[in-house]
Amino acid sequence: MKGMSLIVRTIARVVTTFIFLYSAYIVVYGHITPGGGFPGGVILALGVMLLMLAFGREVPLRKLPEGRASVLDCLGALGFWAIALLGLTAGYFFLNFLGKGEPFRLVSAGTMPLCNISISVKVGVSLFAVLAALSIYRRFYPPGGEPPEDMSGG
């Protein structure tokens, strides 16, 4: 059987929702509280990691295959890049052309929340891809077989 026991799977199913919610909170509130795109993205990937451990790697990979993950990863980076380039049209590269932030207000700070969201996509999907790669390529030799000569020596 793939994955872990029923208890682990049930708890993982419940907890993952909260992990994703927490990740969204960290990203969206990144510009007014400690946090931001990077930590939010890492938390997102950790939620997926829990799913992978509890249900086996196929479950998350069925939702987001490697190819699509690679595209999403690039789109996240391109989003950040595009925001910086848009600043160039307003005068300076990376210029915050949408206005400044106000303390404790969610919809403020111009391009900062947008940057946070693209970074969270980039970081979350990248780490997901790293985890997927580690689980796919964990074996260098066929299951049950001996490692080939040239690999065993390191």
Partner: peptide
């Protein structure tokens, strides 16, 4: 002077566009 950031931005943008566009 706008050239200066582009010298970094162009290869960076190309790096992330290439894996998407290769599908086309």
């Amino acid at each position: 002077d706008q050239i200066l950031p582009l010298l970094v931005a162009i290869p960076l943008g190309a790096a992330f566009l290439i894996p998407i566009l290769v599908r086309v």
